[in-house]
């Protein structure tokens, strides 16, 4: 494995006294497409928030490019698409261009970066449209463009397809795979949609307070880790792509 760009070293986190993550060790290398799965309340979103520096670990260290994430200054290198981004409820009108522009704050040649990001997700023609007029799937693409506008090397997505219709989901997964393959972005995607995730990602991380599994999706299925994670048997349909 190449030198990891993201490392969790013995990371524990609790909300008040309730432990959410316990002694998690994890390393992610540049260019990987990582799926993060686990039961509700298992610590997936907490893991992401620790990675983004939104929460500080009570024990252990989270390192990005070898630096503590809390003091890491080049935050633009990590793009973030939050949960339910595709069903945003803003109080005031805001356009697609304005939202994507937020992502380019502090980036050199910000306007060009916004234009390129919008073009990449095929939304350039909608730049002046109010976000509220777009469908859930289109809004989701806008938030991906916003994340891309910061010219990231890592893209973090938290339950990105919630509220997005099935057709738009397929298009969405294609877009993410393309970002990984053609742009070389490291992708970290939290999802409850295990069937899809195991078919899309190159590496799977299963969290249920502890790190249950970290490896290839194929081994995860063959060794029946799902039963360990959810306490039941389940069948997968592999699509072979």
């Amino acid at each position: 494995m190449q030198q990891p760009i993201i490392q969790f070293q013995d990371v524990s986190f609790a909300y008040q006294r309730e432990a959410v993550l316990a002694r998690v060790n994890l390393a992610i290398a540049a260019g990987e497409y990582v799926g993060v799965i686990g039961p509700n309340g298992g610590g997936k979103t907490t893991l992401i928030k620790l990675l983004l520096g939104l929460l500080a670990p009570q024990q252990g260290r989270v390192l990005v490019w070898g630096e503590e994430v809390q003091t890491f200054r080049s935050r633009h290198k990590i793009g973030y698409v939050p949960q339910r981004a595709g069903s945003s409820d803003f109080r005031l009108p805001v356009t697609v261009g304005e939202i994507v522009g937020f992502g380019a704050l502090g980036v050199p040649a910000a306007e060009q970066s916004v234009a390129q990001a919008l073009a990449y997700v095929d939304m350039a023609h909608l730049a002046s449209r109010p976000l509220a007029e777009l469908s859930g799937g289109q809004q989701q693409k806008v938030f991906i463009a916003k994340a891309l506008a910061s010219q990231p090397e890592v893209l973090v997505l938290d339950e990105p397809t919630v509220g997005v219709d099935v057709r738009a989901q397929d298009e969405f997964y294609q877009l993410i795979a393309d970002l990984n393959k053609t742009k070389g972005l490291t992708i970290i995607m939290v999802s409850h949609d295990i069937d899809v995730v195991v078919n899309e990602v190159s590496k799977l991380v299963c969290i249920n307070e502890e790190l249950v599994y970290h490896g290839r999706p194929k081994d995860f299925i063959e060794k029946d880790y799902l039963a360990k994670l959810y306490g039941k048997t389940r069948r997968f349909i592999l699509h072979g792509h």
Binding site: L52, G53, L54, R73, S74, R75, H76, I78, Y80, P82, F90, V94, E98, I99, G101, F102, G103, L105, G106, S150
Partner: peptide
């Protein structure tokens, strides 16, 4: 203007972005 607007619309994302 832009920093305040971003923080007003989505504080968590703005913080994740380094603001």
């Amino acid at each position: 203007y832009k920093q305040l607007a971003y923080t007003a619309f989505d504080e968590e994302q703005a913080r994740a972005g380094g603001l």
